[in-house]
Design a binder for these strands. Structure first.
Lengths: 149, 149
DNA sequence: CTATATTGTATCGCACGCGATTAAATCGTT
DNA sequence: AACGATTTAATCGCGTGCGATACAATATAG
């Protein structure tokens, strides 16, 4: 029949990455449940733990997300008491996102997650490093094209 | 400050894959718009082009998706006239998904997409192959763990 | 042959994710 | 100072994605 068809799922690099991303979310979920965070919420917290007091668009630049995604997500983090949202006094267009005491406190509980993930699924660190670099190279190509290169 | 913090986004393999998956969807979107399909809808069609007349759960197994995701998606494909949904006469629990004439006709228009993607973003085929294999290996580890290994 | 367990879809509620649009604040030019 | 252009968030509508649950059909047990 069509077994020679190039249009086969197993041949799609894009599907491999797509499905692996979902598998990662599923694998991380039990850990994140303990923190009371979803995976995208966790990523926002990681950005803020690295550098507090950022604007919505700065967070979006780091996570490749739009304001239409971030605004509702940030409101949920605010409702959970982990961050504060406040208009910048200098430039009232911007909204500055700051960690609350509770948000900072979560940092310690969250430290173990990346280590757990890599230890559990990426034993051979060299392969993981190569994979990481190759994925980032691909992402750079993709974002470069879409930005009109 | 916390520049030595291991909890840095750039060090997360999982974030690299996550964000690259989104970048892929964005890159593919213009092509998919021409087909009138979203990316997940396209994946379902690929599965059906490879083998017509499959159950919902069989499609889910191939794409790593649940019925709660597939049922509404399949209804949209049905509304678009690309597939038919019909209870199996032998086992009325199952719903068999079959391509319509129009759904089969879309196959030809869709053939160019994977080639375009790989040609545009994965010039060095060896690197792409290595990346593909490494990603699939990681996904296998992830799904194996979650299935109680 | 009936009671119970299992299976296959569907439904519901919630949380992304984005394109398109809106609204307010700021910037630039005159 | 005043007007139009740009920037920044927020809003809206739509389509995933999943866990929990519901329900009907089938399989199994007794």
């Amino acid at each position: 029949m069509s077994t020679d068809d190039p249009l086969k799922l197993e041949n799609f690099l894009c599907f491999a990455i797509h499905s692996t991303a979902h598998a990662i979310q599923r694998a991380n979920k039990p850990l994140l449940d303990q923190l009371g965070l979803t995976y995208p919420q966790y990523l926002v917290m990681v950005v803020l733990w690295a550098e507090d007091d950022q604007t919505v668009s700065a967070i979006g630049d780091r996570l490749f997300l739009e304001s239409s995604t971030l605004t509702p997500l940030l409101k949920r983090l605010q409702a959970a008491g982990l961050i504060e949202r406040a208009r910048d006094a200098e430039d009232e267009r911007q909204v500055r996102i700051r960690l609350t005491e509770q948000g900072r406190a979560l940092h310690n509980k969250a430290r173990t997650l990346p280590g757990w993930f890599e230890h559990t699924f990426c034993d051979q660190s060299q392969e993981a490093k190569d994979l990481h670099e190759a994925v980032v190279r691909l992402r750079n190509k993709l974002t470069a094209k879409s930005r009109g290169d």
